[in-house]
Each structure stands twice: as structure tokens, then as C-alpha cells.
Design a protein around this nucleic acid. Structure first.
Length: 415
DNA sequence: TGACGTCAAGATCCG
DNA sequence: CGGATCTTGACGTCA
């Protein structure tokens, strides 16, 4: 089983993707932002390789106005070499990338103009995957679209429009059940007529339910994946219990995931997680499915420990105890304690405790000026005249200045 | 007409 | 001036 996440990283990656609005849309700005975004993509690919994350959905915002005539530059040619550099990393690592056009691309729209825009958008997505040198197992995920008061003819129109797409796009499009209009049964029906691979989404099925177990539908959907399409892919997410039906949870609850995976799926599965904490959950689930070495948890502990310390010294100690049993792999308990702790409110006292632990790395090597700044900030914080953000930012600067690897990889400064 | 879901940009406000 | 906090946005469908 391979694990991945969508579009963005949460936490410790320095550069995120930038966007452009119509008002600031100039050639100069486009060149700048595309350059930035390709660097960000490369950084994320590197990160995914380091962390053994096998699947990744590339954001549709990679190229601003990528499918619009407002973008007048030949970005595919101008940045051809950059795409090539990244493609080598993707191909070499075997990471499976994919894309997912947004809600405004609707292949079954009765409006001519919407259809034209959708086809342009699909061309854009295909171009990116092509520039990245991927084969046809790198997919473009689509929902079916609107119902327009007549599901049957809307389904027919989807199939008709799909069949008019150019081959290179048809070979990449796969279809997914959504949480409002088209159930997995509808999508399977379309697949049987048009020969399109089907992505089963568990939360959408839960919200827009047509009967049948997840196991049944995943096994049915498996049959729609041919050899050249690659391993069957599913989307997996959990309900945020505090939000509306269908809202993704902040993080993946491993116990719940474990139970789901006990369904005994028949073949290999690629699992795309849809979750707010993105890469963090992907690492968590990946450690569950592919490892039983406690070193993996120790690496995770090094990243989370100061976050836990500032939330709950009690849980901090519990986790330390848990990790002492070197021959075991208490992964569920480990992440449960992490997740529970992160959801707590931290007290001023606990925050100061964590700050002082981190300051311990620098107290002997900091310059007089740095010491002065630190004691000034901490005094102000104790009086409640600022938040811990400023102190954390300063400590992060010190971590990078003095190259303390342990801290540089910590989530303490970023989540 | 707003909700839908999402996050960066841009605007505004505050010390 | 820098940081914190808001509002807005290229695109569509549905109630």
C-alpha cells in the first residue's frame, strides 16, 4: 500500500505556492511566480523522497492562469528545463504524481463556454503532467459535474464530451464519486459505458450513500483499472466531527485507519489522503503501513517533542516512556498521545517551559546581544504583553544560525 | 443571492 | 513600520 497527500505541505517547508490575481497579472509577475512555484514543487518532491511518501497531487495553481488566455507567455517552453529537472527526480524516485482540476471545471455542462474552459483546463493539466515526463498512470481526477434537473441526460452528456477529448487527455482522466450528486454507483455506471478508471472516495460515499460496503465498491472499482493505468487509487479521509458532513478531519486517526484497512482489500492500493495536516498525516500513515521499526517513531518524536512539551508535560513523559521499549512498535498509542496533546490549549507556564528547553541549545553560545533580546522577549511574555510567536521566531532564527539540525527539523516553529 | 471549500493575496487595523 | 487580522478572488452549480 502506498500513501500520499494533496497539493500543499503543512508545517516545516519553507516555500509555499504563490498565486496571482487579475489585478497584478503581468508577464514579469508571471515569470517570477512560476519560477517560485517550480522551486517550491521541487522542494516538495525532495521532501517526499526523503520521507518515503509515494503519491503526491500537484496543485492546479502551479502555473497561475495556466488554462486561461490571460496567461500569454509560453511557460512550457520558457521553463522547459526546470520541468525537466523536476521530472528526473519524479521518474527516478518512482513518485506517482496526479492532478485534480477544481470545482469550476465541469465536463458535462450544457453551457458551451463552460465546456470550452473545461477542455482548456484539462489541456493545461495534461501539459503539466506531460512536461513532468510521467506515463499514463499519472492521472487527472474529475467529478462528473452538475445534474441540471436530469441526471440521465447529464450522464450521457458527460460520456459524449469525454469521448470528444484528445487521446492524451482521455488516457489520463479518471472519475470520482462526489458528496452531492453522483454516487459511486453512478460513477461505476459511467465507467462501464466509457471505460474510465474509477477513484472511490470513502467520505463522499458515506455522505452521498447508495448502499453497498466500501469493500464491495473498492473491489468493483478495481476492475476499471487497466495495466497502463497503474495501481488502483482511492481517496481516503475522515469526518471532522465538529464540522459539517463531509468536512475533512484535521489529522488522520490511526486507530480508525487501522480498522478501515482491516477490510482486507484484494489487490494493491494507492491511498491518497485528504486531510488538513497533509504531509504530517501521510508520514504517520506511511509509518503504519510500511514500517515496524521504532526508529521511525523516534524521528517523529524529535519533530513533535517541543510542541507536546508546551501542551502537556504529562503526555511528554508518557511518550518518552512509550519509546523506551525498543523492541516494540507502539505506533497507535504514540500518535494518539501526539494528537490528543496537540488538540489541547497550552498554559503560559508550559509554554515558558518549552521555550526554556529550546533556549538551552543556545544559552552558552548566544552572543550578548542575542541573550539580551531573548531575556527581553521572555520578560515581556511573562507579563502577558506579547504572544510566544515572536520568541519562537527568534529561536528559529538561532536554530538556523547555529545549525542545530535537531531543532531545524522541529515542528515547534511551524505548527 | 449566498453556500459550497480552500488558501494566498491584498486590505486594513493596531501598537 | 511590522505584525495580526479581516476580506476577496478566475472559474460553476444548486437551493
Amino acid at each position: 500500500m502506498r500513501i500520499g497527500y494533496a497539493c500543499l505541505t503543512y508545517g516545516n517547508i519553507t516555500s509555499n505556492f504563490k498565486t496571482i490575481t487579475k489585478k497584478t497579472l503581468t508577464v514579469e509577475n508571471l515569470l517570477k511566480v512560476i519560477d517560485h512555484n517550480l522551486n517550491a514543487l521541487e522542494e516538495i518532491i525532495d521532501y517526499n523522497i526523503e520521507n518515503n511518501l509515494d503519491l503526491f497531487r500537484i496543485t492546479s495553481d502551479l502555473i497561475p492562469f495556466g488554462s486561461s488566455s490571460l496567461n500569454v507567455i509560453e511557460w512550457d517552453k520558457i521553463f522547459g528545463e526546470r520541468f525537466h529537472d523536476i521530472s528526473l527526480k519524479i521518474l527516478d524516485s518512482g513518485i506517482r504524481v496526479s492532478m485534480h482540476p477544481g470545482q469550476y471545471s465541469v465536463l458535462n455542462s450544457p453551457r458551451e463556454e463552460v465546456l470550452t474552459n473545461t477542455i482548456d483546463d484539462l489541456k493545461y493539466h495534461e501539459k503539466v503532467l506531460n512536461l513532468l515526463g510521467t506515463d499514463n498512470s499519472s492521472k487527472i481526477v474529475l467529478h462528473i459535474g452538475g445534474v441540471y434537473g436530469d441526471k440521465k441526460s447529464s450522464i450521457d452528456r458527460f460520456i459524449e464530451n469525454y469521448n470528444k477529448l484528445e487521446n492524451a487527455i482521455m488516457d489520463r482522466v479518471i472519475i470520482e464519486n462526489d458528496d452531492k450528486s453522483y454516487t459511486i454507483e453512478d460513477v461505476m455506471h459511467i465507467s462501464s459505458k466509457a471505460g474510465i478508471p474509477v477513484v472511490f472516495d470513502n467520505l463522499h460515499h458515506k455522505v452521498n450513500n447508495c448502499g453497498g460496503s466500501d469493500l464491495l465498491w473498492i473491489d468493483e472499482a478495481r476492475k476499471t483499472w487497466l495495466k497502463e493505468d497503474g495501481v488502483q487509487k482511492i481517496h481516503y479521509s475522515q469526518q471532522d466531527t465538529k464540522k459539517s458532513k463531509g468536512a475533512h478531519s484535521f489529522t488522520i486517526d490511526l486507530g480508525e485507519f487501522k480498522e478501515y484497512m482491516h477490510l482486507n482489500f484484494r489487490g494493491s492500493l494507492d491511498v491518497m489522503l485528504e486531510v488538513k495536516d497533509k504531509n504530517l498525516s501521510a508520514i504517520k500513515v506511511s509509518n503504519f503501513v510500511r514500517s515496524s521499526n521504532i526508529n521511525k517513531l523516534e524521528v517523529e518524536w524529535s519533530r513533535y517533542k517541543y510542541n507536546i512539551l508546551e501542551k502537556s508535560p504529562k503526555n511528554y513523559n508518557s511518550i518518552r516512556q512509550l519509546l523506551k521499549a525498543k523492541e516494540q512498535y507502539p505506533i497507535i498509542e504514540f500518535y494518539n498521545l501526539i494528537d490528543i496533546s496537540l488538540s489541547l490549549e497550552s498554559t503560559i507556564g508550559n509554554q515558558i517551559n518549552a521555550i526554556e528547553h529550546v533556549w538551552g541549545y543556545f544559552k552558552d553560545i548566544a552572543t550578548e546581544e542575542e541573550k539580551k533580546k531573548y531575556f527581553g522577549l521572555i520578560a515581556k511574555f511573562k507579563e502577558g504583553r506579547n504572544t510566544s510567536n515572536g520568541i519562537k521566531k527568534f529561536l528559529k532564527e538561532l536554530a538556523f544560525k547555529y545549525e542545530r539540525d535537531y531543532l531545524m527539523n522541529s515542528y515547534y516553529f511551524s505548527i
